[in-house]
């Protein structure tokens, strides 16, 4: 599935959007919008990391909250336990989460397909419950509260943007290397890949290590930015693990830019509804912000199996020839 040629075809769209993101906080003088974009950029990191492991290597993870939470707690515990700055977490959140990733890979990669997915759910829930109950270490349900370093959103914005670019860039580079081809080979047919001499355990672990590293960094960033975490938030199955999957699906599984697009759609769509279209429609609409996102997910899975980016040609086709049948695969029923 060559996704790299897409990149050559319309590089300007990507260049322009990156340029826009770089200039955004200077153009828009509103902490509210900056905050939204910071959260969206954080989701770009989580979604892209998930996509490397699940979309490219085929190991559907339902447990990315583990890495996010471990990263966040690494940063938080530096403050509560060692009275040091939580920024150490930006250095160590990634590596610690990577180590956790190695252990989880060692446990879970002996399982395949849906069993792998289930095992990651189980481990995620165990992490959450341990964090909730190991009060002497994690403060339990009270969570960890620190003091933000910067008043302004701008430093956080550029940190998040740097993280997102580093993450997407690394993944794009990895996918052009031999590793990337091994990952895709494992996704397409693990036994055939093994037969060709690719150690599936080794490359699945490498994929998981990169994925957990960046998710951990995103977690450490979240700790520093939000200044408050508790197990229900950072180890949440529904709000982190599953959201990571949905971000990937909406944008397009197995595409480099898919999760980035998905993250922005997710954050902006939910926020549009949460704010009742910025006050234009009645208040009760705001109650439906997750619901709308869920409906979008169902719609995308049903009609655009490869997500917005993966099925972009199909969407364009609809645009240019409204009457044309978009593809035989969706004409059923």
């Amino acid at each position: 599935m060559g996704n790299t040629f897409n990149w050559r075809k319309i590089p300007w769209a990507k260049v322009l959007s990156v340029a826009f993101l770089v200039l955004f906080p200077l153009l828009v003088d509103s902490d509210y919008y900056r905050h939204l974009f910071i959260i969206a950029l954080m989701w770009v990191v989580i979604g892209s990391s998930w996509n490397l492991l699940s979309g490219y290597t085929g190991q559907v993870s339902f447990g990315h909250a583990i890495f996010f939470g471990v990263g966040a707690y690494t940063a938080g515990l530096f403050t509560t336990k060692l009275s040091m700055s939580a920024w150490w977490g930006m250095l160590l959140g990634g590596p610690v989460s990577l180590l956790v990733g190695i252990v989880i890979g060692w446990i879970c990669f002996r399982l395949r397909g849906p069993y792998f997915a289930l095992a990651t759910i189980a481990i995620g829930e165990i992490f959450r419950q341990v964090a909730e109950n190991w009060i002497s270490f994690t403060e339990g349900m009270q969570g960890i509260l620190i003091i933000q370093t910067f008043r302004s959103k701008i430093p956080y914005y550029y940190l998040a943007l740097g993280l997102a670019i580093a993450c997407v860039g690394t993944i794009a580079l990895v996918l052009r290397s031999k590793w990337g081809f091994y990952f895709i080979a494992i996704r397409e047919d693990q036994d055939a890949a093994e037969a060709l001499g690719i150690s599936s355990y080794r490359y699945k672990s490498l994929s998981l290590m990169i994925s957990s590293f960046f998710t951990g960094l995103a977690g450490a960033f979240y700790m520093n930015y939000m200044a408050f975490i508790d197990p229900q938030v950072v180890f949440s199955l529904h709000y982190i693990s599953i959201m990571a999957i949905l971000v990937g699906i909406i944008g397009g599984v197995g595409t480099i830019w898919g999760p980035a697009v998905g993250a922005f759609i997710m954050v902006l769509l939910q926020e549009t509804f949460r704010s009742s279209f910025y006050g234009l429609v009645p208040r009760w609409v705001s109650e439906a912000h997750v619901l709308v996102f869920g409906l979008l997910v169902i719609f995308v899975i049903r009609y655009m199996a490869n997500g917005m980016v993966g099925d972009w040609p199909k969407i364009q086709q609809l645009w240019s020839r409204p009457k044309a049948v978009s593809s035989p695969s969706v004409s059923g029923n």
Partner: peptide, 13 residues
């Protein structure tokens, strides 16, 4: 689709 788990993901939705 790329991932065979599409139906499972649909149940999530």
């Amino acid at each position: 689709s790329i991932l065979p788990e599409n139906q499972v993901l649909m149940t999530v939705g």
